[in-house]
Design a protein around this nucleic acid. Structure first.
Length: 475
DNA sequence: ATGTGC
């Protein structure tokens, strides 16, 4: 399969249309990273190209790897009038995303990272099946969180209005009909709002060790040596349940609308059908839940710092991005302005300077893009570009991509060894279980710097700053 | 990712 790819540029490898493919596939990757992409993943990119209404290309970012139906790292835009929407193009963890806060602290101020991470661990509930410890939500609270997202959290005392303005979509997408959220999703959701979860989700204290673009860094309020805090998590069991619920709905819809599927995991419905609209609505509610979730965690992070430093520490939200979502956006397609549904699954929006959806504070430089590294490795802040609008429907990568299965990682690494090794490098890791540390070992992922360098060189984002870990809390 | 899976 890999042999059949046509190289059209140093970092663009094309899958020429064959069989039912309506458009070519495009994998944006270096030769070195392409060698790490499995044939099954390339097949997934080709499969997505068969779906009705797809525009330009079925695309994959340099951190692409195998996923449910669509590859993780996949970007696909569908004409709103003739195209489809597919839960597999969003992923189970709807609005899995990242936020970063800048602080008034310098790296030298983190004198006791162990104490800090223990306090953060105490204040932010973490781990598989973690439940909210500091709050008891009513059904009304939950439904408001599903409807208003980060705004609900701020109105209920978790953070400030400025936080909301610094979220993608201002932390909330309009939902028409909350009755579409199943009882099961509500039951799972009510206990888990304000929790970190597990797996690759984390909370990290970092410092900026390199600035690549002084002007943009200044606009984002960043300087070398500054301490930042990154939160990576999503919509927990609620989003997972909503995805599961709608995979069933879509299975029927695919038959009803006679959509020919090369893989049953690609079940979809026309965007303008009853089922398509229902999924978009329920997905938006899950996205709002995730924004409320990250907002509550932000509040407790601020609390934890205040406890440790015995005073309030200034911690402004730089930005909050989602990297698992489908959105209705306007794009230029072959010189024509068009309404499309952009699926970004393990891909981040990368809007350029002057785009109306970029917060006013950053509009002159472009949208901040937040790329988490794997445990113990660098994370990056980038900025959106016009080139991304032309090449990838305003999208870029989302992080390092997994190289090894969780099972394989557990067999190969011991959590305690990894932790000691990171500690020797001055990085503190605290997790609920040692097995989590082995599953997330740095060696299990592609190098985030490699992925980031490709999107930077390709121009679908520009590097602004590098963030090095000091202390990590893993679920 | 997930009231984890082989």
């Amino acid at each position: 399969m890999k042999k059949e790819l046509k190289r059209v540029d140093q970092f663009i490898h094309e899958i020429e249309p064959e069989g039912d493919m309506r458009v070519p596939g495009r994998i944006f990757v270096s030769q070195k990273l392409l060698d790490l992409v499995e044939d099954e993943t390339i097949k997934q990119v080709a499969n997505v190209a068969t779906l009705p209404g797809i525009q330009k290309y079925s695309m994959a970012m340099p951190d692409v790897h195998y996923g449910y139906g669509f590859p993780i790292g996949g970007v696909a835009a569908f004409d709103v009038k003739t195209g489809v929407i597919s839960p597999g193009g969003v992923g189970f963890d709807i609005n899995c995303g990242v936020r970063v806060m800048r602080t008034e602290l310098e790296s030298a101020d983190i004198t006791d990272p162990k104490r800090l991470i223990e306090e953060l661990f105490r204040d932010v509930p973490s781990g598989v099946g973690s439940e909210s410890e500091h709050v008891r939500l009513t059904e009304k609270d939950l439904m408001e969180a599903f409807e208003y997202g980060a705004e609900w959290a701020v109105e209920n005392g978790y953070g400030v209005e400025e936080d909301v303005r610094h979220c993608e979509e201002e932390g909330h997408i309009e939902v028409q009909d909350l009755s579409l959220i199943s009882q099961r999703a509500r039951k799972r959701g009510i206990k888990q709002l304000g929790t970190l979860g597990s797996g690759n989700h984390f909370l990290e204290v970092q410092y900026i060790d390199e600035i690549f673009d002084e002007e943009v860094a200044k606009a984002f309020g960043l300087h070398r040596g500054q301490v930042t805090v990154m939160v990576h998590c999503g919509s927990r069991g609620a989003g997972h349940q909503i995805c599961t619920d709608y995979l069933k709905v879509m299975e029927k819809a695919s038959k009803k609308y006679k959509i020919k599927l090369p893989d049953p995991q690609l079940v979809a419905a026309p965007i303008e059908s009853e089922e398509g609209r229902a999924y978009l609505d329920a997905m938006s509610a899950a996205a709002n839940y995730a924004w409320a979730n990250r907002q509550m965690i932000t509040h407790w992070v601020r609390d934890a710092f205040a406890t440790v430093y015995k005073r309030e520490i200034e911690m402004d939200l730089i930005y909050d991005v989602c990297h698992n979502i489908a959105k209705i956006e306007e794009h230029d397609v072959d010189g024509k302005r068009m309404k499309v549904c952009v699926h970004r699954k393990g891909a981040t929006r990368a809007f350029p300077p002057d785009h109306p959806d970029v917060p006013a504070a950053y509009r002159s430089v472009g949208q901040p893009i937040l790329i988490p590294g794997s445990m113990g490795t660098a994370s990056f802040i980038l900025v959106g570009t016009q080139r991304a609008m032309e090449l990838t429907f305003g999208s870029t990568c989302h992080g390092a991509g997994r190289l090894m299965s969780r099972h394989g990682a557990k067999k190969r690494f011991r959590g305690s060894d990894i932790r000691k090794d990171l500690e020797r490098h001055g990085i503190i890791v605290k997790a609920t279980r040692d097995s989590v540390i082995s599953e997330e070992a740095p060696e299990v992922y592609k190098e985030s710097s490699e992925v980031v360098n490709i999107v930077d060189k390709l121009g679908i984002a520009r590097k602004v700053a590098r963030l090095m870990p000091i202390a990590v809390a893993k679920g």
